[in-house]
Design a protein around this nucleic acid. Structure first.
Lengths: 180, 180
DNA sequence: TTAATTACTGAACATTGTTTATGTTTGTTA
DNA sequence: TAACAAACATAAACAATGTTCAGTAATTAA
């Protein structure tokens, strides 16, 4: 019996990932430029110089590409939020947290739509039960708010309620800024 | 030369309006049940027992039906908001204003999506420059907030900023409640 | 009754997402 | 090497979509 040479399997794996990455990158670019609904699988395929059918060998359907982008969006948001850790004053940090969030929404507003506003992906997320990535950002916010409470900047408020209201406010501002 | 008998023209006009109403009502019902994107022109036509092409004699395209619903949604919201006028205390009234808004969003959340969350119609609105109906509700909010300020419930805040923040907060809460 | 206007439709068009039957390249085994 | 298997990729087709248009039926006018 033969042992399969690892090099080949690894290369295949690499190539598969590369292909998925290529599709994703191309789809992202198109989605950001023209919005999810206005991009066809055919156009993505054309860009990467493959047949439309090839896409379906790497992603189950069009929605799954969107879902992958969704994950990337949350990753971006989380990374951007981490930058405020250098601010020592909890209150200043929380304010920066909010303005950062709004800036993120404005600068990546197509991402933002995909993440929070459009209903389409929301369905997908519930099915998949993979909201952890989104929740991570919310936990980070709660941590920041908690430190504001401990430092006496917010008096006698329930942590969850405060976090919910804070996110709602920033999200509301962002949505209104995007839509108007 | 003959003068056209008015009765016939009036009847025709009535019938035209009736037909538009029938299409709208049917489309609304379907949109509310299944979402704009999942309803086809063919299904609307089928429901009213006309050919798909007939729809296009009364509405330019599918989006225009959505736009008409959009207007109705704002009308509903505005009417519902008016009910708080009976509350004399400005602060209580403002709080009711907010909870009403959230209730409206939850109870008519498909409407609400069409009005604020989905991007599709937003494009349409900008083209048409008919945001007046939406703005009317915002003006009403500003009036309420202004009276809170005058009555000393809100100290030293800019009216527009306060109104903006208030709507953002309620909108944010509503959006999050709908999406989660 | 005939002509003109209006209301409507059937059939078709161009696109969409997706699947399937088929070929083609690459890897494995003898 | 030759023969077989697996992976990869595609062309072609499918079903469904929004929309249009030539033509038909119904209504109104002369």
């Amino acid at each position: 019996m033969f042992v399969k040479p690892m090099g080949i399997l690894e290369r295949k794996d690499r190539e598969k990932k590369k292909m998925r990455g290529l599709i994703l990158k191309t789809a992202m670019k198109l989605f950001l430029e023209e919005g999810f609904e206005n991009v066809t699988v055919r156009r993505i395929a054309e860009r990467i110089e493959y047949s439309p059918a090839a896409i379906y060998l790497y992603y189950k359907d069009k929605d799954e590409i969107l879902y992958a982008i969704h994950e990337i969006g949350f990753e971006k948001l989380y990374k951007q939020q981490q930058t405020i850790l250098s601010i020592k004053n909890p209150w200043k940090r929380l304010k920066k947290h909010g303005s950062n969030y709004i800036n993120f929404a404005l600068e990546n507003h197509e991402y933002y739509d995909l993440m929070f506003i459009m209903r389409g992906p929301a369905k997908k997320i519930k099915e998949k039960e993979e909201w952890e990535i989104g929740l991570r950002s919310f936990e980070f916010l709660k941590k920041n708010i908690n430190e504001c409470i401990k430092a006496g900047y917010l008096s006698k408020v329930n942590l969850d309620v405060a976090a919910f209201a804070f996110w709602s406010l920033t999200h509301g501002i962002a949505s209104r800024l995007i839509l108007c």
